[in-house]
Amino acid sequence: MLVAILAIAALAAFFGILLGYSAIRFRVEGDPIADQIDALLPQTQCGQCGHPGCRPYAEALAKGEEEINKCLPGGEALVLALADLLGREPVAMDIKEKIPSVAFIEPEDCIGCTRCIQACPVDAIIGAAKQLHAVINSECTGCELCVEPCPVACIQMRPIQEDIQRWRWPYPARQPVESDSAAPLRDAA
């Protein structure tokens, strides 16, 4: 009996020492998961998630300190992608998704105060003090961060117009009868 106890204890002690050594020897630094999350985020830097930019939100997610449904520009697609990456349960978005828009500065009202320029996270507004400001449409991420600071409320968000270049083929309306079932089982392979 005593022999059995001692043998097991010795074995356990040996493996404990081995594990203790391994824990020190093979420690991994850094947090690559945050990079992966950051790559999924839309990089609007809009701050609507409550974090100052996309990277901080990614880091918070990586630490498990945040919900995955905070990114409004990413929408439901992002929630599903994050749920997939982080192995979490998908959660519905708080608010409906917005239509993609860009900021537009009313030229007549702009007083050239540069506050919107300071607010823009991606330098998509050009202009100088006391000069008319203008939005570079192709750079604007639609984050709306410039709308609030404008003292004369001359910035509006305008939906991006559909044109031939931007047009997408619609998802077929003629669905097979079992259209509501999700991805088929056969695809699991």
């Binding site: 106890i5 097991i8 356990a12 002690a13 040996f14 404990g16 203790g20």
Partner: peptide, 17 residues
């Protein structure tokens, strides 16, 4: 710390057995 790991595990083994 390595020795600590070993002894804790050993202690549990003794207890369990």
């Amino acid at each position: 710390s390595i020795l600590l790991s070993g002894s804790v595990l050993g202690a549990f083994a003794i207890g369990g057995v």
